[in-house]
């Protein structure tokens, strides 16, 4: 398929032409019978390779709607969305699925792992849709689990893992096809504060290796681990600030009291 650009590996993100995402005047309406909800009211933003963006905002401000657009799960009602210079509006459903599979990694608030399926098999899942051979699939799935520090939990089922561990499995799953961007919608929403910082540690390390991350959170404590914050209000970006004095999650963890388990 000619419209799909080859998935970039996190390693080659230091190229000079580094614009990854360009969103121009995007609107999104939801038709609800008679009424029409205007969820996004003209959003424009560009995100470059290697960025780590935290999206903040009150509930209902349009953060998830925006993430769904970035994730090619939905299309804008108007405006343009260019992903690696490709206008997503031009692509058919099959091409969008291929983009989700190879260029994007998703992490959700509710983990969204398949139950009664082992950690390894959950992580392997995206590789099945990427037509990789069995050997390559397993190698990559193991490698991704190692990246998130769960190589010793490969054969565990989600029900046998803690929330933080389940979220790590989900992160490993999002990494397995070596995407250009990791999209995370409130990934720490269901986790306690220490585990949240642990997840942010994983994100920071991945970002250090060049992976672009866009993350939604409504906790300021979490957003400060990112490099840049966007503030949404009423379907618009109200503020766009770089993060000054970004703490290292690894350091913060050392200061936090250890959980006894």
């Amino acid at each position: 398929m000619s419209t799909v650009v080859q998935p970039a590996s996190p390693a080659d993100t230091s190229r000079p032409t580094s614009e990854l995402i360009r969103v121009e005047e995007v609107h999104k309406y939801y038709e609800l019978g008679e009424t029409r909800v205007h969820a996004l009211r003209g959003v424009s933003v560009t995100i470059s390779r290697g960025e780590f963006v935290a999206i903040m905002g009150a509930s209902g401000s349009g953060k998830s709607t925006f993430m769904n657009l970035l994730g090619c799960l939905d299309r804008p009602s108007s405006g343009r969305y260019l992903l690696e210079n490709t206008d997503v509006a031009q692509l058919d459903k099959k091409a969008l699925a291929a983009i989700r599979n190879r260029k994007l990694g998703f992490v959700f608030q509710g983990f969204n792992l398949l139950s009664r399926t082992t950690a390894l098999e959950n992580v392997e899942l995206p590789t099945l849709y990427a037509q990789l051979n069995k050997e390559e699939r397993l190698t990559r799935a193991r490698e991704a689990l190692r990246t998130v520090g769960l190589e010793d939990r490969m054969d565990h089922f989600p029900s046998q893992l803690s929330g933080g561990q389940q979220q790590r499995v989900a992160i490993a799953r999002s990494l397995v096809n070596r995407p250009s961007i990791l999209l995370a919608d409130e990934p720490t929403g269901n986790l306690d504060s220490r585990t949240s910082v642990e997840i942010m540690d994983v994100f920071q390390q991945l970002n250090d290796q060049g992976l672009t991350i866009v993350l939604v959170t409504h906790e300021p404590d979490i957003s400060r681990f990112a490099k840049r914050t966007l503030l949404f209000r009423d379907g618009k970006i109200r503020r766009d600030d770089p993060v000054a004095d970004r703490p290292r999650a690894g350091e913060v963890l050392k200061a936090l009291p250890k959980l006894e388990d």
Partner: peptide
Amino acid sequence: REIGIRMAIGATEDD
């Protein structure tokens, strides 16, 4: 939900 997960990670309608 499983179908949603599969689609989000790259399953096509055909899949």
